[in-house]
Design a binder for these strands. Structure first.
Length: 269
DNA sequence: CTGGGGACGGGGCCC
DNA sequence: AGGGCCCCGTCCCCA
């Protein structure tokens, strides 16, 4: 799984292993006169330069669906003229060589009677004007040029593309959620680090406050992160969650099992 | 090298 | 639809 949004080593205080909270957090770890508007630059960052006042006029840009090729579409005499999508989102950027084949896909020789399929839904029409009128219903209004780039994967499922990366989603909500990982709208007021979701920020703030609301019932340890508590609970377990296929040894974490495998215990696996 | 903790990422589910 | 939360997972660091 690509971890394209890992944000590491923003600040030198990351290096300090503050096992027992941050007793001197606000003075020791925060860079002096930390410039909120000048977060350390990252290649991927479209927003680190202005984390607090994000001005994103365009989060979702039109982009052709990479999975849709002329071959993947049903035989469809999509007209080139009024329906060449020149006003549609997917052709406004002008750099879509590969998309050209969609509209120029020749009709199947098997189709005795022309059937005009909508590019955006499963409807089909036997007359061009009917399809033309129907497809207008899929066009974004003129005043909304930045509506999400939505294509269809199989003529029925919409696909929403992320402007910032190749990911795509089948719901606008999922895409918006994903885009937050690019825009990082939740900014820590203490150190300026930005996060995609409020609860991530809250978890991060605990690293400043030292709050550890997740206590282990078996020992005195407490954790700021529930996942870390869960991992810790594995250390109390006789039989741990992750088992080696060869030696049956168990590990509290997948990463430890992977390390174990990589060390040569299970050369076959 | 191994085990464990800290921090934080994503998707999915629920309300 | 959007936010909150959960679960799973990864990476980094340290003992």
């Amino acid at each position: 799984m690509p971890r394209s949004f890992l944000v590491k080593k923003y600040f030198p205080y990351k290096k300090q292993h503050n096992r027992d909270c941050y007793p001197e957090r606000q003075t020791a770890f925060v860079p002096e006169n930390f410039p909120l508007a000048e977060l350390p630059t990252e290649k991927r960052s479209v927003l680190t330069c202005q984390p607090a006042t994000l001005i994103f006029s365009v989060d979702i840009l039109p982009r052709p669906h990479p999975l849709i090729s002329p071959e993947s579409l049903p035989p469809s005499p999509i007209p080139m003229g009024p329906l060449d999508l020149s006003s549609s989102p997917s052709s406004s950027s002008g750099d879509e060589e590969e998309d050209g084949g969609r509209t120029s896909d020749p009709p199947s020789p098997d189709s005795m009677q022309p059937v005009y399929h909508c590019l955006h839904c499963s409807k089909s029409y036997t007359s061009l004007p009917a399809l033309t009128q129907h497809q207008m219903s899929h066009q974004p209004p003129p005043c909304a040029p930045e509506s999400p780039s939505m294509t269809t994967e199989d003529s029925t499922r919409p696909v929403f593309h992320c402007k910032h990366c190749p990911k795509e989603y089948n719901s606008l909500g999922a895409l918006k959620m994903h885009i937050r990982s690019h825009t990082l709208p939740c900014v820590c007021t203490t150190c300026g680090k930005a996060f995609s979701r409020p609860w991530l920020l809250r978890g991060h703030i605990r690293t400043h406050t030292g709050e550890r609301p997740f206590a282990c019932q078996h020992c005195s340890r407490a954790f700021a992160d529930r996942s870390n508590l869960r991992a810790h609970m594995q250390t109390h377990s006789e039989v741990k969650k992750y088992q080696c296929g060869s030696c049956s040894r168990t590990f509290s974490r997948m990463s430890l099992l992977n390390k174990h495998n990589a060390s040569g215990c299970c050369p076959s696996s």
